[in-house]
Structure formats: C-alpha cells, structure tokens
C-alpha cells in the first residue's frame, strides 16, 4: 500500500484529504507545515507521493518541493501542489520547483483518484 504525505496548515483540509485518501486505499501521513513535513521525511518517513498546499506559514509549497527534490530519495517522488483556481503564477512557480502537477482546492474526489492511479499504478 502506497503512502501519501499531505502537507497543509489547514486542519480541515488535512482531515478531509485524509478521509478521502484512506477511502481510496492509501496510507496517509499528515504535516501542518513544510517544516514539519521535512522533519518527518528526515526522520525516516518515506512517502510514495506528496500533496502540499502552496500558501503556508514558513516555507511555502514550492520551497518544500525544492527541499524534498534536493534529497536523493525524493528526486523522483511524485509531488502535487494544492492551489486555488486563480493561482496560475503559483502553479508555474511550483512547476519550476519540481512539482509533478497541481490540484485545485477543494479536490474533486474522482479526478484526484484518477490522477493518483496514474502516479501510483501499483496502488
């Protein structure tokens, strides 16, 4: 079973994403900030995919992705950014940082499951 790390400073987003991803059959790790996510990953956690919010106190989503990409074990880990529909400039920034794609908040369950199946074909 693949494990997905969700990073968002919003407890409600974390809750709803956790429920959604659990229902899809994935293991879920949560972090309320980029710093907490980096601590978790440095501590030995190895998620198969990362979904991060862009706007967070401290490091933003692009900075988190950049930091994760600098780690050898996460050079090829799929990373998705949660954005709002009008944040096209943020999407470009996330892409430049090494994001695999983006998702509009709040995530549509059908589209989310579809893209996760593409990125994690082994489930």
């Amino acid at each position: 079973m693949s494990t997905i790390l969700i990073v968002d400073d919003s407890p409600t987003v974390l809750m709803s994403m956790e429920q959604l991803l659990s229902r899809f059959g994935y293991g879920v790790m949560k972090a309320a900030s980029a710093e907490e996510a980096l601590r978790s990953v440095s501590g030995g956690s190895r998620p198969n995919l990362v979904i991060t919010d862009f706007n967070m106190p401290g490091k933003n989503g692009a900075e988190l992705i950049r930091a994760l990409r600098a780690m050898a074990q996460h050079r090829f880990t799929p990373m998705l950014v949660l954005t709002t529909e009008s944040q096209r400039d943020r999407r470009e920034e996330a892409k430049a940082a090494g994001a695999t794609g983006w998702l509009v908040k709040p995530a549509d369950p059908v589209q989310l499951e579809s893209v996760l199946k593409k990125l994690l074909p082994n489930g």
Binding site: S86, A99, T100, D108, Q111
Partner: peptide
C-alpha cells in the same frame, strides 16, 4: 479561495481541476 469555497467547490467546473506537468 472565497470564490472556490463559496460555491461549494472550484469556481469554474468546466476547467480541469487537476493537471500533471
């Protein structure tokens, strides 16, 4: 975000809500 949440979802449903680079 106000627009996204006020409508109970993304504001422009005809647009893709997810994209892989």
């Amino acid at each position: 975000q106000r627009r996204a949440h006020a409508g109970g979802g993304p504001g422009t449903p005809e647009e893709p809500q997810v994209e892989l680079f």
